[in-house]
Simulated assay, not measured.
Amino acid sequence: MLLCSQKLIAEKIIAANADYILSLKDNHPTLHQQVKNWFEAAQLIGFEGIDISISQRIEKGHNRIEKRTVYTVPVSQIPGLYQLDLWVGLKTIVMVVRSIQHWNKTTQEVQFYITSLVSDANKIASAIRQHWGIENSVHWTLDVTFHEDECRIRSLHSPQNFALLRRIALNALERESSFRRSIRQKSRRAAMNDRYMLSVLAAALSNSVPLP
């Protein structure tokens, strides 16, 4: 289901003359494993003879040093990619290696992406970094306002459903402009004032005008 929806998302983005960068995880098991295996093999030979673009960035702060290395290769470099023809506009495969050095330990994580952008590691790294900034900001707001990290909902599709509802609520609260307070204060007022709650709901609709 998710795989199909992401392919549809990619198709719609390309139809709108835009570009996409989509995370490649275990919900795409065959393609994910194929890409992972290819990069591991390519690293063993030092990417010799491979058309690859590499970008590296080191950031210091919060008592840690973070090193991010972004590798991008045209899809033509990885033959036989699974269901390649179903990903509209797909041009580049991306690997991001994040190494974080704390005072007492070093952690590393590897993430893969597929994108319609051409293989330019600097440009793609910048786009992914901006996405991380937005995601981190949204996550912080959701945790402060709705205590998302403390949520113990675990069964079936409930976690995804509630996460979607929180983001809808966050969007509505951000769009409501008659009460100029923090998102948390707006949320509390909506819980205590039915008229303001209707104003928030109205703000969530396109071309709507908040109630006076």
Rank of each mutant, 00 (worst) to 15 (best):
R175I: 08
S55H: 14
N17K: 15
Y113T: 02
D120V: 05
D149I: 07
G61H: 04
K36I: 00
P79V: 06
L44A: 14
I124Y: 08
L164C: 13
K25S: 13
H131M: 07
G133I: 05
K25C: 03
E109W: 03
S126V: 01
G49C: 04
V118K: 14
I168E: 03
S76F: 05
I128H: 08
S199H: 11
T106V: 15
E66Q: 12
K60F: 07
S5G: 01
P79I: 04
L81K: 08
H147E: 10
I153H: 03
W103A: 12
I54S: 01
I100H: 01
K91Y: 02
Y82A: 09
E40A: 11
V138R: 11
Q130D: 13
A127Y: 11
K91C: 09
L201Q: 06
T30K: 15
L201M: 14
D194V: 14
N104Q: 14
S5H: 10
R188G: 11
L164Q: 13
H102W: 12
N207L: 10
K25F: 05
S99L: 08
L211E: 03
A172M: 15
L156Y: 03
Q160G: 08
Y82K: 13
Q43P: 00
N193F: 12
L173I: 03
I78T: 03
V88L: 11
V118Y: 12
L31M: 09
V110N: 10
S116E: 02
S99H: 07
T69Q: 09
P74D: 03
S182Y: 10
V73D: 00
Q111D: 09
S182I: 05
T72D: 00
E66P: 03
P210T: 02
R195Q: 12
H131R: 07
R64C: 07
K123G: 08
L142P: 02
G80Y: 10
P159F: 10
F112M: 05
M197V: 04
S177L: 06
R68A: 08
D19N: 15
K36S: 08
L44W: 00
A121Q: 02
S187N: 13
V110Y: 07
K186D: 01
S208N: 13
R154T: 04
S177Q: 12
M95T: 01
D19C: 10
Q33D: 15
C4Q: 15
P159H: 11
I52E: 00
K12R: 15
F179S: 05
A204C: 12
R154A: 02
I183E: 02
R175F: 08
F112W: 12
Y82S: 13
A202N: 06
I114Y: 00
T69S: 05
S137P: 02
